[in-house]
Design a protein around this nucleic acid. Sequence first.
DNA 1: TTTT
DNA 2: TTTT
Lengths: 151, 151, 151, 151
Amino acid sequence: MSWDINRVVLVGRLARDPEIKYTPSNTAVARFTLAVGGKQKNDGTDSVSFLPIVVWGKTAETCKQYLSKGKMVAVDGRLEQRSWKGQDGSPRSTIEIVAERVEFLGGASGPGKTADIRSEVPDMAAAPDFYYDNTETAIDFNPVNPEDPNF
Amino acid sequence: MSWDINRVVLVGRLARDPEIKYTPSNTAVARFTLAVGGKQKNDGTDSVSFLPIVVWGKTAETCKQYLSKGKMVAVDGRLEQRSWKGQDGSPRSTIEIVAERVEFLGGASGPGKTADIRSEVPDMAAAPDFYYDNTETAIDFNPVNPEDPNF
Amino acid sequence: MSWDINRVVLVGRLARDPEIKYTPSNTAVARFTLAVGGKQKNDGTDSVSFLPIVVWGKTAETCKQYLSKGKMVAVDGRLEQRSWKGQDGSPRSTIEIVAERVEFLGGASGPGKTADIRSEVPDMAAAPDFYYDNTETAIDFNPVNPEDPNF
Amino acid sequence: MSWDINRVVLVGRLARDPEIKYTPSNTAVARFTLAVGGKQKNDGTDSVSFLPIVVWGKTAETCKQYLSKGKMVAVDGRLEQRSWKGQDGSPRSTIEIVAERVEFLGGASGPGKTADIRSEVPDMAAAPDFYYDNTETAIDFNPVNPEDPNF
DNA sequence: TTTT
DNA sequence: TTTT
């Protein structure tokens, strides 16, 4: 009821191949890291940001199929914070970009193909809930190492 | 030379009062947490994201002056990932929203006032570099507890 | 197949009350003009932009119900160009912001209510097609005066 | 003093070569039309939007130098409405995207180069004012044919 | 852990 | 640690 405006648009390159997993209800979820070129710092250092992208549903499968490390994409999505308890019981959280649209820009196959999430994921609303569950399957489904900031 | 497109726009409420600090070169930097209303989850849970906002320069001071917990703002900025070494030497990183513009929307004083960062911070480019330094002052300048996901 | 990234986020005030109409297939479409404060010009003039917003479906009805001249909103949507033939047969076109989400910010009722378009408009895809038709109804449905900059 | 949030991000292809002109104070201004792929309409028609992009200053010159018809770019900027009197004295207006950043994505030379507008155009604030003047030079500087939807 |  |  309180859906605030929350919009992110990024252009960058995949820092690694997308990984895909499936929820128990069989919704696909892909993850990859996007390297987004930041402001050149005045000490000559390059300041790239490595940002975690999450994609749900059919779009996830399209990403898995067509994208790989080094490919350039544009992402249109939302910022989401996810909280969990660390192994020592302490509260932890990460921020992720949940992509609603991914436009493929780079590589040999050429630009122009866009994967869109709208109306492709009937059970998408359900999936995230499970995702946060602490069931065994969910754990397996969770980030391999949620402590790792770069996951 | 490779400044990728990187844009974030959020509307939400301050989850706490802004904190302001100054770099050695006397540039102001304010921080606050923005509560952004997420998608209502189907288990009835509210899914709010708490997102860390960073503001530099004169805009930071305007934010400190006019904003407080509960106020509503719109933020226009960029996503940045910041990396550092944890106390145990392990690599850690956070994602922050570096606000370029903050529009004040809520509260008694009414909406309409916008704090803009452009051309207000001559030494803004310099400041972030120091910010990442490992000098004592820098450490003091760093987040009190960089391990805290909600900082 | 070639859905390019196309994203607009605006905060401003309604320059006039929303108008609502219905397509033959009974999809609601609301229109209003958003006054968005531009860059202060150096001759002291205020440079406000008056931007045409289009909203489809249930969101349109929510806008009609809650919004009126002077209210503040945040709009998240897409840019669309619409072409037509003028009365003299010459080609004409306008650019509109098709809002996917409208967040109510201003007024007595307070902020926090967001109207969202996603999955609310089953026949939304069909509606625009009719909109571009040259049937009599469609003409009546078109802007009363497409030359009017404030339309 | 009332700079509302106003943000546009687009990915598309140049529908024609950029044109460059200079204001009397010698600030460069480039214009091109961006073809942005819209939603596939259900009658099989392709619904592309042709959107007018304006770029100021050094970025304008970089665009003129590197971009041409067919090249792919990402644009990050603001929406602006410009009003003028038609030849018959009637009020007219257009909406333009004033690009603050243009990222070059397509073509043989490959992606990765971004033209940025920030702090490159000292007299940028002055230039737009002239642009709206009714002097002879300004008229020559205005769109050759403001009625042309593809301008 | 990282992309060009 | 959290806003309405």
